[in-house]
Amino acid sequence: MILFEDVSHDYGGGPLFRDVSVRLDTGSFHFLTGPSGAGKSTFLKLCYGELLPSSGKVTLLNRDLRAMSRDQLAETRERIGVVHQDCQFLDHLSVEQNVGLPMTATGRPVKDSDISDLLGWVGLSAQADALPPTLSGGERQRAALARAIVSAPNVLLADEPTGNLDWEMSQRLMMLMIELNRMGTAVVIATHDLNLIRFAKAQVQARVMRISGRKLQLAGSEL
């Protein structure tokens, strides 16, 4: 599904990580950890083609990232849900419109009731008509997660998706991602939250990847 082969990335000040080879299969569940600045967000950006690797090969959904046309990249992203650390919304559209955007902007039909159900799941029913700038940090993260999963993607990439949430809501969102994973979605979550990782590992077979010393290390099943 997502394949890294000897991938290195360099922003110009030396490689952030190098010779990373990893395979993220259908239905897999991975956590990505590591110190701040180690390259977790960069790794995720490579996973949805926002960045091209400095060297090596990235294959997204059976397509070589470098060889993809812009339309092919967009088509690939239709099947990848992304929760950004800074969320990123269209601030002049309502939460409901933002959540439905992956469907409406790509010409796929979406039922209002589906979006309402999803907003209910992430606890944002009351904020459906609100504008994103009026939401709290936690509400923005929940809305971003709802937008990322509205299209039932093949891959879900989430960068600190529970950073601003209380434990109860974090568990609830984690359960949502686990349910999605059980339906076949590959999930990659970058997080520092060890409790969250333990919670998830109790529910699903998750592997932990750690970026450290410019290398990606794949931990065993035990944390």
């Binding site: 812009r70 967009a74 088509e75 690939t76 992203r77 919304f89 269209l90 955007l101 902007a105």
Partner: peptide, 16 residues
């Protein structure tokens, strides 16, 4: 720029 980044992120084509 933010609008364009978000739209590309969710899979919108350049044409759209």
């Amino acid at each position: 720029g933010q609008v364009i980044r978000v739209l590309r992120l969710v899979g919108a084509r350049d044409r759209f």
